[in-house]
Structures are given as C-alpha cells and as structure tokens.
Write a protein that binds this DNA or RNA. Structure first.
Lengths: 104, 104
DNA sequence: GTAATCAGTTACTTCAAGGTAAGTGGTTAC
DNA sequence: GTAACCACTTACCTTGAAGTAACTGATTAC
C-alpha cells in the first residue's frame, strides 16, 4: 500500500521541464551559471535562475560565491542532492525502455 | 554521460499531477472507472478520462469492456506498465527521505 | 416511472509554469 | 573608453494542464 504523498513530493522537487536537466548538467561538471545555461539548449536565464532557487530551497544544490575577484558563483550538489542520482538513473533507463516499446 | 531525452520521456509519461496516482490506484486493485475516481480525492471525471487515454496510448494500461450486461470497463496494467513499479517505489522511497530531510 | 449507478463527453474557464526581452551592476581585455 | 563577459533581475506575455459544471445514454432497483 503506497501512500501518495511521497511520490507527489518527489514530483514537486524533480518534475517540470527543467529541474532534472539542470541537476544532470551540474552532475556532469557544470558548476557556473553561464556554463549550466550554455549546456542546456533553449533554457533562458530567467528560468534557470528560478529553478536554481527552487533546487537550493530543497537543499539539492548549494550556491557558493568565491571571495576573490572576479566573483564567481558555483553550484554543486549537496549530499542530499546526490541521493537523487540512483533515481535519475532509473528514470533514464526506463525512458530508454519506453522509447523502444513505443517507437519500436 | 546521461542523455537528456530518456529522462524527459519518462517525465512526459508519468509526470503531471495525476498519472502516477492513477497508476498506483490501478496497481492497488481498482479497475473500474468510478472505482478509480472514488479512490483519488479531488480527481474529476474529465481529468481521469483524459489521463486514462494518455496512459492507454503509452501502453501502460489496457482498457477492456465486458461483452455481458451491464457493460463494465476494466483498466489493468500491461506488462509494460508493470515495469514502472520499481521506479514508482524508488520515487516513493526518495519522497519519504526528502520529507524527513526538509521538514525535519 | 423515477431515482440512482456506470462510464463517460462537451464546453468553458482558470492558473501557474514557462517564455520573451530588456535592463542592471560589476569586471576584464584591448 | 568601449566592447564583452558574468550573474543575474524585472516586467510582461503565452500556453497548456487542470478544474468546473452540466449533460448523455444505457442499465438497474424499487
């Protein structure tokens, strides 16, 4: 008997059009704002900014600003964010399976 | 290097507010239209009807109509639909973990 | 014969996620 | 000193998912 709330919580956090893409981009080594932006086609600065705030609020990523000049911000996965990796891999694998099934 | 498309495919199929809830309801033994509708609070007939069509298009559920009277429709998971169970369980588990982390 | 149930459809509205475009304030390269 | 880059913000607009409400057509119970 699965209760519904936890699954909805998960979708709130990683659902939508961009959140998973941004997480994957950071996982793959893109840590700066423009770097992440350039790595994901059609992602606007406004949407990226909004989504990064959401991800930070949910403690999946952390934002740090270097004290030196030029000031550079760096986004990294938190330990909590890293617990998503297995789930993202599962979603990837199921997506591949599904595409094979549907497109044939 | 995870490509983005498969994860997006997965979200297209199980994302949104209702699809996973409907799948879980069917998994738990609700097979008739009104049965599914009653099992999920605040779900309207129109939305249920739309979502069931989507799920059928994606070959996750199948719709069968009994030849006898009264005509009853039955929605069941396909074999392909059953491959989602592991992923849904993962989403459930991560949701529980996340709620602990955020709400404390 | 009328009230209720099943399995939906149709027409219309609302709303939040996402998109567009321009601007801000600082730094660096030449 | 001006052009370009970094890291955004602000204001406004668009669109599609979801919600509301009423209706359909068949069957069954009383």
């Amino acid at each position: 008997m699965l209760s519904i709330l936890p699954v909805r919580d998960t979708l709130d956090v990683i659902g939508g059009k961009w959140k998973i893409l941004i997480l994957i981009s950071i996982m793959e080594g893109n840590h700066h704002f423009r770097e992440i932006e350039r790595s994901i086609p059609n992602l606007s600065t406004k949407v990226l900014s909004d989504q990064l705030k959401d991800l930070e609020t949910n403690q999946l990523i952390s934002r740090s600003v270097s004290n030196g000049f030029p000031v550079r911000t760096a986004y990294t996965l938190t330990e909590h964010g890293k617990t998503l990796q297995k789930l993202i891999l599962e979603m990837h694998n199921w997506g591949v399976l599904h595409r094979k099934k549907i497109i044939q």
